[in-house]
Each structure stands twice: as structure tokens, then as C-alpha cells.
């Protein structure tokens, strides 16, 4: 147990440190690289929970796709200039409050999910395996799951539309 605890503290230290460095560092590419390290240590936390699938998918989606595109964009647009225009205090405050609310929602989700987790634990089912996960996602949570994909599709269409519009103006 103690080794797990040591790993947990180690990963937490990395997560928090790199998260702060992401915000603090002046160079956008350094910022992005710190964020990548942060995502990796979060994947490590998932592994500590024995959530293998979640950890690997987290790496594929966040580190492997989103952050690669981020770095790609920063490199392509040559945003190497250090420092950026500072936002107003009110904007920063609003951002902090809205993120705090998101945390609140997440906490509520976890608390609501607790009894469900207990039923899996008592029945001895391996709730981390992809088979169980897939069945739950496509049976009990079918509608939210499909709505999430619709949301992604709408976002994608919106981006395509925005980029097309800019071109016609030019």
C-alpha cells in the first residue's frame, strides 16, 4: 500500500507542478509541453485506480491527438513571441468562477456514481474491462453517449463554417 501512496504523491506533485508551469511559462511551446506532461501524470492517476482503458484512451485523445495539434498550430503560426496581452481582472475572475462551478458538477457526478460503483464491487464484476464499459455505455447511457457525439459533430461543422466564412471575406 505504501508504494502506491508514494507513487500517488509523486504523480500528484508532477501534475500540480506542471499544471502551474503551464499557466506561468511565457513561451507557448513550453506551456504546451508542460501540459502534455500533466496529461501523462493524470493518465498515471487513472492507472492507480486500475482504470487501464481510461488511462490509455486519455493518452490517445489528449496527449496523442489534441496536444499534437496544439503544438502543431503553435509551431505553424510561429507564436514564439513571449508574453501576451493581459486580460481584465473581471474576465479572469469569471473564468475562475465558471471553472469552479464545473468542478462542483464533477463532484456531484462522482457522488452520484458512488452507489453504482458499490454494486459492481459487491457483484465482483470487472467494471474496468472494455466489455462491461461498452455494454453500460451503449445500454444505460445510450442517449447521453449519442448526444455527446452529436455535440462533437456540431462543433466540427461550426469550425468548418467559420473557416469557410473567413475565406470568402478575404
Amino acid at each position: 500500500m505504501s508504494t502506491l501512496l508514494i507513487i500517488f504523491y509523486f504523480l500528484s506533485a508532477i501534475t500540480l507542478a506542471t499544471a502551474f508551469l503551464t499557466i506561468i511559462s511565457k513561451n507557448p511551446i513550453h506551456s504546451a509541453i508542460y501540459l502534455v506532461i500533466c496529461f501523462f501524470s493524470v493518465a498515471g492517476h487513472y492507472l492507480l485506480f486500475n482504470a487501464q482503458f481510461l488511462a490509455i484512451v486519455h493518452i490517445i485523445v489528449y496527449s496523442g491527438a489534441i496536444m499534437v495539434l496544439f503544438l502543431f498550430t503553435i509551431m505553424l503560426m510561429n507564436l514564439n513571441k513571449e508574453g501576451e496581452p493581459h486580460k481584465k481582472i473581471a474576465t479572469k475572475l469569471a473564468a475562475v468562477i465558471s471553472f469552479g462551478l464545473v468542478c462542483f458538477v464533477m463532484l456531484a457526478v462522482f457522488i452520484k456514481a458512488m452507489p453504482k460503483m458499490e454494486t459492481y464491487r459487491t457483484s465482483g464484476q470487472d467494471f474496468q474491462s472494455i466489455k462491461v464499459l461498452g455494454k453500460v455505455l451503449l445500454n444505460e447511457y445510450m442517449v447521453p453517449f449519442e448526444f455527446a457525439s452529436v455535440l462533437l459533430l456540431v462543433a466540427m461543422m461550426g469550425v468548418v463554417l467559420l473557416s469557410k466564412k473567413e475565406k470568402t471575406i478575404q
Partner: peptide
């Protein structure tokens, strides 16, 4: 996952 990280 490992292949997608390799590009870094």
C-alpha cells in the same frame, strides 16, 4: 497510444 506519442 504509444505510436501517437512518438510524434513528440
Amino acid at each position: 497510444a504509444v505510436v501517437s506519442v512518438g510524434v513528440y
